[in-house]
Design a protein around this nucleic acid. Structure first.
Lengths: 140, 140
DNA sequence: CTAACTGCAAACGTTTTGCAACTTT
DNA sequence: AAAGTTGCAAAACGTTTGCAGTTAG
């Protein structure tokens, strides 16, 4: 199940393609996001420092914002104060397991949000967040 | 267009029905939410104090959380740091105009999220957030 | 009289920022 | 050398909390 086989040089290329200098910190951040998927900024910070102690909190945040602005990653707000970054920047949606706090992807083709009847005229579609909150069925 | 004609005594009753003491502050908060719709906690705080100067920030937040827990209102996180409270607690979805920061309701019957093919087995549906971000079409 | 509520101010957790030091080209 | 990047610590942001005083039942 480690079949994705992402190599760091690919990450470097990806960053360069978006005009981002592939510094060690940025490569690590994106690499971990691409392999681990679905983590908060702070989890990422902890994880990176446990292994490498080479990334400051500020850099993690700045890097994530930069990559988000350049469309390399996505940010999903799963509950009021909690954002999870998403390695997959393509249009897709999410199940959010409120018990495990885990985010599960839903392929974009399973929901069509641009074909809603009441879609406002003259407006541009910028994106859609679809978060379907699920949990263990109550044990009662 | 002020046809909804919500009276404060109705608000009081609504609060009592949910086991919430209808204090002056709580009635004002819910009344303003029911008439104005779609406001952040802070906007609500400003608005109430401009007219009455009778509600503290803490009370606004506590009141909103209480009413949210009791299912009287909803909370919609429209962008990472920004929550908008929603007078309508029934299942429904939203367009979010990123230019005007305005939230527009989409009736629940226009999207069916519980009938997704990949819906995880053995999990309970807790709710869904659907936020479709729109904006003025780029003037270029 | 008791329980509940409010407001203040301080604490909170997360994210952003200013700036000096350090890389990279 | 110039431009870009990093890390620290401080600040900012929205929100929550502890507690004393107030109000309601």
């Amino acid at each position: 199940m480690k079949a994705q086989g992402i190599e760091k040089f690919q990450i470097e290329q990806e960053l360069r393609d978006k005009g981002i200098q592939p510094t060690a910190q940025r490569v690590e951040v994106l690499y971990h996001l691409r392999t681990g998927r679905h983590q908060t900024a702070d989890e990422l910070f902890e994880l990176l420092n446990e292994e490498f102690s080479m990334v400051s909190r500020a850099t993690v945040y700045n890097t994530l914002n930069l990559m988000k602005d350049r469309g390399l990653i996505g940010e999903v707000v799963v509950e009021p104060g909690k954002s999870i970054f998403d390695a997959n920047s393509h249009a897709h949606y999410h199940f959010y397991n409120v018990d495990t706090k885990e985010l599960i992807d839903i392929p974009a083709d399973q929901i069509c949000v641009t074909c809603l009847p009441g879609y406002p005229a003259g407006k541009e579609f910028l994106g859609a967040d679809v978060i379907i909150r699920i949990g263990e069925r109550a044990p009662g």
